[in-house]
Every structure is written in C-alpha cells, then in structure tokens.
C-alpha cells in the first residue's frame, strides 16, 4: 500500500486545479510520489494516483514509463547520474562511471548495500562546459574527476 502524505495530497489537488486540463497534473504528481516513495514510483502508487485524480492508470503508466526521470524500481538515497553524452564522454565520463560502480560494488541501476547509492548513465545534462557533469538527485556537480567523486561520495551520508 502506498499513500501520499496529507501535504502530498494537497499538492496533487493544487496541481489538478492549476492547469486547464487535469491531465497536466500527472507529471508534477509523479514527482511528488517519487519524493515520498524512496525515489521511485511503484504500481501501488500509480493506483493511488489514479484514485486521487480519476485518471485511468493505463494512462498514468504510459506517462510514467515514457519519461526517464521517473524510476520504476527503488533507488538509493543518492541517485548519482553521470552524463555520458558527447562532450562528457570526451572527458572520461564513461570511465568515471565504471570506476564509481566498481568502488561502490554495484552495477548501473542497482542500489548499494547500505541503501545510499544508485548510479546511472544519463544523456546530456546541459552542462557541457563543465564536462564531465554529474547530477546527484537535483544537484549538479561540475568537472568531475575520480578524486572529486571520492570526496563527494564520502560527504553524502
């Protein structure tokens, strides 16, 4: 069973009224669910949102699965997203990702044993002048190196 917090429900209600069409509330609501559900959107959460909004869950699922920022399985507390697109890959982003996975003992998309980390390769983050760029949850980190990554990991408790 998943249920949004009272604040979460309030947000969904506000989003439903915010746009001309209630379907526009799906994406902001899914973000809220993800925030309250350890970084992912579960099938139960989709049912819950469908009930709250009156939008069929087939449609919510369609939206959920189309957008890459929604996770379909649990993620670590810190979701480390390494841009491996063109400029970042020129500056060793792929090697950085492999190195990071090895250090954490996980494969891409997995959660580390202590529940702290998930590592994913992502597409262009729009920070190509600071390549390689890494996004941890909502925060950008620039010009990453293996050393800077070590420091970052040790600071994320």
């Amino acid at each position: 069973m998943f249920e949004l917090s009272p604040e979460g429900k309030e947000l969904v209600k506000k989003e439903l009224a915010r746009y001309e069409d209630k379907y526009s509330a799906i994406i902001p609501s899914l973000y809220q669910i993800q925030k309250e559900n350890e970084g992912w959107v579960s099938p139960e959460a989709v049912d819950h949102l469908s009930e709250l909004t009156g939008i069929p869950h087939s449609h919510i699922n369609e939206v959920l699965k189309f957008y890459t920022m929604f996770n379909l399985k649990p993620t670590g507390k810190y979701h480390i997203q390494v841009c491996c697109n063109i400029t970042c890959s020129m500056f060793q982003a792929r090697e950085l990702t492999d190195d990071l996975c090895q250090k954490l003992g996980i494969k891409e998309g997995e959660v580390s044993e202590d529940g702290r980390f998930t590592v994913s390769r992502v597409e262009c983050l729009g920070s190509c002048d600071n390549a390689p760029a890494v996004q941890v949850n909502e925060t950008y980190h620039d010009n990453m190196t293996p050393e800077k990554m070590d420091t970052l990991i040790s600071e994320l408790k």
């Binding site: 994406i27 899914l30 369609e62 957008y67």
Partner: peptide, 23 residues
C-alpha cells in the same frame, strides 16, 4: 512546467503533448 526527461519534448508538438499530460 517542469518536464521529466525526454529529448523529444523539445520538438514543439512533442512539448505540447507533454504539457497536455501525455507521452
């Protein structure tokens, strides 16, 4: 309006679909 990760939404009609709460 905050998108959710899809390059194709930069195409203007894709963006409109997205804003309408669709793929």
């Amino acid at each position: 309006y905050r998108g959710a990760g899809a390059y194709i939404c930069g195409e203007e009609t894709g963006m409109i679909s997205s804003l309408e709460g669709k793929k």
